[in-house]
Design a protein around this nucleic acid. Structure first.
Length: 510
RNA sequence: GGAGCGUUGGUCAAGGGGUUAAGACACCUCCCUUUCACGGAGGAAUCACGGGUUCGAUUCCCGUACGCUCUACCA
């Protein structure tokens, strides 16, 4: 059985690929892989003015980073190409004309002003937004109200027109949603949607039906916000005579803002202090850079994981899933019907888990790049790996590694002297003089020996070891963080350890 | 205003006529660690409300409330 799953990218004034978009792609992908189907990606660019150049490449790179598309371009080519709506323009108008010829749609010549006037005229307290529907249809300038000759004359004059669907009066339209079950609408409550715009491009309504049909799509996933226009699409499938080929729909729950209310929008990220885009996105119009999950230090595995379980679970207690596990366990009947508020703390938790879980080799190059950009030079490969292992438990984001490990590569510039000062005294100062002397002649420079020597000397000088460890840490690290001090000393080396002690001793006594 | 869809702790959620109503994040306490984490033990906190149906409803039905989405020549 042929099964194809489609996904639709909505161009928008700001472009970018945000959480909801990636999740829709992900669910499509999981479903397709699970059922050994094809995974169809399409670019939607009905509105030329709004489509942001570069968005296509951006989207593709995002999906590549996530591991959802192979390297070769899946957005073009293939048996159902082209995928750009502007390249399929002819096809849409042809079907729109067919609908008019069969009496399911009509030409409408109303200008923007006339439409506004109509809305103003029919506006009441009970009905603040009047629709272009069976009630007002007859009163407007269109091929339903006008005579055939008049219509011909207007067209010949070159008057711009749109094609609108003629919604039937009082018909119950029912379809089955894979997530929600049976959903019904009354046809009278939907207006006569524009199918073909004056510029000859289709609206989403026409395009989605024509494309799904011509690309032989069997399953279509989209956000819940599309539910109210589903009856229009259902009618179009019927009117074009393709009802038997209509794909099964799944309307996904929305991802909501973590604070107040409403669906998560592209602007919320900056306002609330977390990313909403998969990767950095620079709005060409606003010249504003929105930070992406990737640049913030998220692992693609974690990003996919957290997105997958935002609105879906497999019924077990498992929360950490590999992509393969997601494919195996994914099922639409465990997708929630209600929207989920995005929780950035939890999102970071997923990343933390993945940093702990994945082999260092999977992500070390990202950390290395970050280090190098910040001026650290990595000379010893083995040492670098050793350090990563040592600090990974305390890093939530890949970008945390710099803060947690930079002191291995260069001495701290500022020491947290304030934490040492109150309990600092002459005896301790002397202790460190002696210890550093002993360090220079210690035979085997390793963590165990350093610790033994350190502690023995403390006992000898009758100072509590505990009171010496914090100063030692601050000498080496600069602050109250990082792994065991003796491990640090062993890695940075004998000379560097002694140097840092000497330098700190001066700072402490000032 | 209308329509559609939804509603289990602060958040994500399992469950789906009889349960001590899982688990995770966050929060609190303690242990480990004389750093910060990790890890471990524990705690506080939930079935929106009202009617039915039933021996019994968080679960099924109907209302109500609340929330969200849509109501464009945007998707």
């Amino acid at each position: 059985m042929e099964k194809k799953v489609r996904v639709r990218f909505a161009p928008s004034p700001t472009g970018g690929l945000h959480l909801g978009g990636v999740r829709t792609v992900l669910y499509n992908y999981l479903f397709a892989r699970k059922h050994q189907g094809d995974f169809v990606l399409r670019i939607e660019d009905t509105d030329q003015n709004r489509f942001v150049s570069g968005a296509e490449d951006y989207i593709q790179e995002c999906l590549k980073w996530c591991g959802l598309v192979p390297d070769e371009s899946p957005l073009h080519g293939g048996p159902y190409a082209p995928y750009r709506q502007s390249e399929r323009k002819e096809m849409y108008s042809q079907y729109a004309e067919q609908l008019v010829a069969n009496g399911f749609a009509y030409y409408a010549f109303d200008t923007q002003e006339e439409l506004e006037k109509m809305r103003e005229q029919f506006k009441t307290d009970e009905n603040p937004s009047p629709q272009y529907n069976h009630i007002v249809r007859e009163k407007m300038r269109n091929s339903v109200s006008l005579s055939h000759d008049e219509v011909q004359r207007l067209i010949n004059e070159g008057l711009p027109y749109v094609i609108r669907i003629k919604m039937p009066d009082n018909e119950t339209l029912t379809f089955t949603d894979m997530i929600r079950g049976e959903v019904s609408f009354n046809s009278s409550l939907t207006d006569d949607k524009v199918l073909l715009k004056a510029d000859g491009m289709p609206t989403y309504h026409l395009a989605v039906v024509v494309d799904d049909y011509s690309m032989k799509i069997s399953h279509a996933f989209r956000g819940e916000e599309w539910l109210p226009s589903a009856p229009v699409h259902l009618l179009l499938w019927r009117y074009l005579g393709w009802e038997e080929d209509m794909p099964q729909w799944a309307h996904l729950p929305l991802i909501l803002k973590p604070d107040g209310h409403g669906k998560l929008s592209k602007r919320d990220g900056d306002r609330l202090g977390f990313p909403v885009f998969a990767m950095n996105w620079k709005d060409p119009k606003l010249e504003e850079m929105a930070t992406g999950f990737r640049e913030l230090g998220f692992l693609p595995e974690a990003f996919l994981n957290l997105l997958a379980v935002l609105g879906w679970n497999d019924g077990s207690e498992q929360e950490i899933f590999t992509l393969e596990e997601l494919i195996e366990n994914f099922s639409l009947d465990h997708v929630h019907k209600g929207g989920a508020k995005f929780n950035y703390e939890k999102a970071k938790w997923f990343n933390h888990e993945w940093i702990k879980k994945l082999p260092v080799d999977n992500w070390q190059h990202t950390v290395r790049k970050d280090f190098e950009e910040k001026g650290l030079i990595i000379e010893d490969e083995n040492k670098f790996f050793q350090i990563l292992e040592l600090v990974r438990d305390r890093c939530t984001l890949l970008t945390d590694f710099y803060q947690q490990a930079s002191f291995f590569f260069k001495a701290p510039e500022v020491l947290d002297v304030a934490s040492v000062k109150p309990k600092w005294n002459e005896d301790k100062s002397m202790f460190f003089d002696i210890v550093s002397e002993k360090f220079t002649v210690l035979e085997d420079w390793n963590a165990v020996n350093i610790e033994t020597l350190f502690k023995d000397t403390a006992i000898e000088k009758e100072i509590k070891v505990g009171e010496l460890q914090l100063p030692f840490r601050i000498m080496l690290v600069g602050g109250k963080f990082g792994p065991t001090v003796f491990d640090i000393a062993s890695i940075i080396g004998r000379g560097e350890t002694v140097n840092r002690i000497k330098k700190a001793l001066i700072d402490f006594s000032e």
